[in-house]
Nucleic acid binder design. Structure first.
Lengths: 110, 110
DNA sequence: ATATTTTACCATGACAGACGTAGTACGACA
DNA sequence: TGTCGTACTACGTCTGTCATGGTAAAATAT
């Protein structure tokens, strides 16, 4: 089966993560699994890609981090929630996607 | 109007160039214009991106360069033609695109 | 009881493609 | 004479991805 090159997804990793955060706060390991299952195994995000996306997006104000106090055990787990700016960014990216798809498909044989 | 981020196109610049070379040999400046008009102005490839793509693809064996002897004037113009390996790469990328689109659209609101 | 796997995250450095900036050089046209 | 269009190149920077390797606790298997 053809593999998806990361250079294609590159511009949409942030968008994918934000999409999953629309449903509520989550954390790295869970997001990772949800991407894998959501993409039916066709795309597996690398850990480092994911965690650096969190850092970048928090800096950009698209997400906010917090730690769950009610956590079982001593495990540290960082949760992220989407901000209004993040929701706006997500919407913009969805629009951009439609345009991008149109453009690319002018040069792709179907 | 929304702008297309280059990080999305990133994985498909080579494919777009190869598509245009399927119709016959061409050169940088012409390819550039054909991308712009083909995309109806929604995507304009940067010169440096284009020429570095040529270099990369020639190294990869997807295209071959030659210079037109019948050229008018003293201008140097480097033509490129697609190779069999390039055609194969193009076909693979088209298949990959279908898969990529599917994956991304699982996370994109329509 | 011990070993392995799963969960959960992070630091560091390398790499590749895109891009900003700048430059060369010729012809056409005003 | 000056600017615009054509055609290409050099150089350095930036950004996102990724390989590598590490920490540490909980869950599961042997």
């Amino acid at each position: 089966m053809a593999e998806i090159s990361s250079d294609v997804i590159r511009g949409y990793n942030d968008t994918i993560i934000l999409y999953l955060l629309l449903e509520g706060p989550s954390y790295g390991y869970e997001i990772s699994k949800r991407i894998r299952t959501g993409a039916e195994g066709k795309y597996i995000i690398k850990e480092t890609t994911l965690y650096s996306a969190f850092t970048r997006m928090e800096k950009n104000g698209y997400i906010e981090s917090f730690t769950d106090e009610v956590m079982s055990g001593g495990k540290k787990r960082t949760y992220y929630r989407i901000t209004d700016a993040g929701r706006e960014y997500y919407r913009a990216k969805c629009e951009e996607w439609q345009l991008t798809k149109e453009v690319i498909e002018k040069f792709i044989a179907r």
